[in-house]
């Protein structure tokens, strides 16, 4: 593994992230819209008696969404790089494919963790009380989930050559991943087929882990669906799998 290459891939992403203000602004605006426009409206329909106000319930989901969008966006920029040639510069370098995948995965991890942290600052506004330990817990989970989703995004990027596929990925992969993740509704309340699909979604475990950390409810419809240990085990296992498969796919020479 080449740490110099991993470092410089992350540095490049970070530099571009800071330079592109519009990307940062829209990344922060999206969760705010969901939280205060959709969440506030929906909270009128959902009785707080079910455990907590709806805006509080969707907070982990909104953090998950922030991570989902920014991680996938960061990873599928590979398609952009492929189309505009820069990816060739990376592929032609004396760097193992594993380092490239890990470097790109960590790039996505850094930018999405930063964005998730900014959204996390909203918790007092929603009336949530988080201790220092909980905040740390959320950050650690955010890092793990960001890496998992970023590597999933890299895997997606290996299948597409042109940037026109961007909207396909957004509409048919990212949006369904968001809706079928337990972000907006508890998985345990979903009808069977949807519940099955939800359980196949890596993001579900990420959001569930965040739910476990943010409001450790014992029971009730709004409580977490799996244990924190299960969530983390799934996330780590999937990350590992995505990295290995993506590295393999990049290795393929035509």
């Amino acid at each position: 593994m080449e740490f110099n290459a991993i470092y410089v891939l992350v540095a490049r992403e970070f530099k571009k992230f800071i330079r592109e203000r519009s990307r940062l602004v829209s990344a922060i605006a999206r969760p705010l819209l969901w939280l205060f426009l959709v969440g506030a409206g929906m909270s009128r329909l959902v009785s707080p008696k079910a455990g907590m106000p709806y805006t509080q319930f969707i907070f982990p989901g909104i953090l998950g969404m922030t991570i989902l969008f920014s991680s996938i966006f960061s990873s599928i920029s590979i398609i952009w790089d492929k189309e505009f040639g820069f990816f060739k510069e990376i592929l032609a370098a004396p760097v193992s494919r594993l380092s490239i995948v890990i470097g790109k995965g960590l790039s996505g991890t850094v930018v999405s963790t930063i964005q998730a942290s900014i959204v996390l600052l909203l918790f007092p506004v929603l009336g949530l009380k988080l201790g220092l330990f909980q905040i740390l817990e959320v950050l650690i989970i955010a890092i793990a989930v960001s890496f998992c989703i970023s590597t999933f995004g890299i895997l997606l990027a290996t299948f597409y050559e042109s940037y026109e596929s961007f909207s396909v990925i957004m509409n048919f992969i990212v949006m369904p991943m968001f809706f079928l993740s337990g972000a907006m509704y508890p998985v345990k309340l979903l009808p069977k087929p949807l519940a099955v699909a939800t359980k196949l979604n890596p993001l579900t475990y990420g959001i569930d882990a965040l739910k476990n950390a943010i409001f450790p409810l014992e029971e009730g419809p709004m409580s977490a669906d799996f244990s924190l240990v299960t969530d983390m085990a799934v996330i780590l296992f999937l990350s590992f799998t995505f990295v290995v498969i993506a590295a393999r796919l990049f290795e393929r020479k035509k």
Partner: peptide
């Protein structure tokens, strides 16, 4: 600089 790092 990116290139230099990439090539170690």
């Amino acid at each position: 600089v990116f290139h230099a790092y990439l090539y170690g």
